[in-house]
C-alpha cells in the first residue's frame, strides 16, 4: 500500500503526536514509512506540517498533488497545504480557527468560515468542529486523537483502528488513556458517516 498523509496545523496543536501515531501504526502493520516534521522556531505558533509517507518513497516530503489525505487542525492551514492533495484525495478539517496575534491586533475578521466554504467547494472534505467533538472530554487538547478517529472512520487511512488504538495506549500517559480512547471513538463514529 502506498499512501501519503499530510498533517497540518499551528504549532502547539498536537500535530506531531498525531503524525507519530500514524507512522508507528503503519509500521506496526508492516509497511515502510518515511516521515518528516517541522521542528524549531515555527513550533512557536507558526504553521506546522508533518508528512507521512507509507510504502515506497524517496523524498521525506510529499510531492505536490499526491497526498491521499490531509488532516488539518485549522481551516486556513488546510487551504495553505491544499496543493499537496491528490484530485481524489480527502481533507479532514477542524472548523475552529486559531487566530494569529497579528489578527487580534489588526482585526481583519479572520474566523475560518471563508476557508471552510472554499474547501467544501473545491475538494472532498469532512468538516469537524473540534470544540463540539471534544466537549465531553473537557478540553480541545484531545482533538489530535479525535481527528485520527475520524481518519480511521472514513476507512481511507488504510490502517486498522485496533493498531492505532494500541499505539495511542503506548504513547499517552496512563491516566489519559481512557479519555484519549473515548476521543478516538467519538471521531471514529463521525468518520464512519463519510465512509467511502
Amino acid at each position: 500500500m502506498n499512501k501519503n498523509i499530510l498533517i497540518c496545523g499551528v504549532g502547539g496543536q498536537g500535530t506531531v503526536l498525531a503524525s507519530k501515531i500514524i507512522a508507528a501504526s503503519a509500521m506496526d502493520e508492516g509497511s515502510a514509512v518515511h516521515s518528516a516534521e517541522t521542528i524549531g522556531m515555527a513550533q512557536r505558533g507558526g504553521s506546522v506540517t508533518s508528512h507521512v509517507r507509507i510504502g515506497e518513497a524517496y523524498s521525506p516530503l510529499i510531492p505536490g498533488g499526491t497526498a491521499d489525505m490531509i488532516l488539518a487542525f485549522e481551516p486556513a492551514e488546510a487551504v495553505r497545504n491544499l496543493s499537496y492533495l491528490k484530485k481524489d484525495g480527502i481533507v479532514i478539517v477542524n472548523s475552529v480557527p486559531v487566530k494569529p496575534v497579528t489578527e487580534s491586533l489588526m482585526n481583519t475578521g479572520y474566523d475560518g468560515t471563508e476557508m471552510v466554504a472554499y474547501l467544501k467547494n473545491k475538494c472532498s472534505c469532512v468538516v469537524i468542529d473540534a470544540k463540539k467533538i471534544c466537549e465531553p472530554f473537557g478540553s480541545s487538547r484531545y482533538f489530535n486523537i479525535a481527528i485520527l478517529g475520524v481518519a480511521a472512520g472514513t476507512g481511507r487511512l488504510g490502517i486498522s483502528k485496533e493498531t492505532i488504538l494500541a499505539e495511542i495506549e503506548k504513547r499517552v500517559p496512563q491516566k489519559f488513556i481512557e479519555t484519549n480512547k473515548a476521543a478516538f471513538y467519538a471521531g471514529y463514529e463521525e468518520g464512519k458517516k463519510y465512509e467511502a
Binding site: V10, G11, G12, M41, A42, Q43, R44, G45, G46, S47, P63, G64, G65, T66, A76, V79, R80, L82, S83, Y84, L85, K86, K87, K99, P100, V101, T102, E103, T108, Y110, E114, M115, Y118, K122, C123
Partner: peptide, 21 residues
C-alpha cells in the same frame, strides 16, 4: 505533471509569524 489543485482562487491566508508562547 503535478496533478494537484490550482489554488489561485484561494482566499487570502492569515500570516502566522512565530510568536512567544
Amino acid at each position: 505533471a503535478n496533478s494537484g489543485y490550482n489554488l489561485s482562487d484561494a482566499p487570502a491566508l492569515p500570516i502566522r509569524p512565530p510568536v512567544l508562547c
